[in-house]
């Protein structure tokens, strides 16, 4: 399986081109890092890969096929701020169930405690919430996972905990991972190769 971006270009309505003619690919089971100065559009590029945003030029292909806009997206995204990625009026159990499957194995890997499931998002810390966001994304059985500054706001132990769980699942399922982080040491530790945007 191969996720490919061909000649991607993007700009906001009247602004200048954020980037043009970007080519990029990830293979199944590969961990690829994307670096680049802030303001270069790393986050926007990730959003295009995950189908949040549509590229103005170029196309995103999964094994040479276009990705259908409907249904479960094969590329899932986890962002920096988990507080914004869960509905504040949902209990945590419902957040997990949104992906369709309630995968207890992944929850255990990520260190999600049973007791947290009956809590509101506001009662959990950022590190705890991010585990839920990762669990939700992985339970959707994506072919690729994008981690855009996924552990930037977390302490080292939680960061290691989440990444070990993600890497283990990725190996098991032959899932590809795209990492965006400003932290060079983390990138070096995780990635098979690093590309510059």
């Amino acid at each position: 399986m191969r996720l490919e971006a061909k000649g991607i270009g993007f700009k906001y309505e009247k602004g200048p081109w954020l980037f043009r003619d970007v080519n990029f690919h990830v293979e199944a089971g590969e961990v690829v890092g994307i670096t680049g100065a802030s303001g270069r559009g790393k986050t926007t590029f990730c959003r295009i890969l995950a189908g949040f945003e549509r590229a103005l030029e170029g196309e995103i292909l999964l094994d040479g096929q276009k990705i259908l806009p409907k249904g479960m997206h094969p590329v899932q995204l986890v962002l920096q701020h988990p507080e914004q990625a869960v509905n504040p009026r949902w209990k945590m159990r419902k957040v997990l169930e949104e992906s369709g499957t309630f995968d207890e194995n992944i929850q255990r890997l990520l260190g999600i405690e049973k007791e947290w499931l009956s809590r509101w998002p506001g009662e959990l810390s950022g590190g705890e919430l991010q585990r839920f966001c990762v669990a939700r994304a992985i339970s959707a059985s994506p072919k690729f996972l994008i981690a855009d500054e996924m552990t930037t706001m977390l302490d080292a132990i939680t960061q290691a905990q989440i990444w070990q769980a993600v890497l283990e699942t990725a190996k098991e399922r032959n899932m590809g991972i795209i990492v965006v982080s400003h932290e060079r040491k983390l990138m070096e530790r995780l990635c098979d190769r690093i590309v510059e945007l």
Binding site: A50, G51, F52, K70, G71, M72, H73, Q76, L77, L79, H81, Q84, A85, V86, N87, E98, S99, G100, R136, A140
Partner: peptide, 13 residues
């Protein structure tokens, strides 16, 4: 426009 709704769309809702 909240992030969690956009996530929900990508989860096929």
């Amino acid at each position: 426009s909240a992030e969690y709704v956009q996530m929900s769309r990508r989860l096929g809702k």
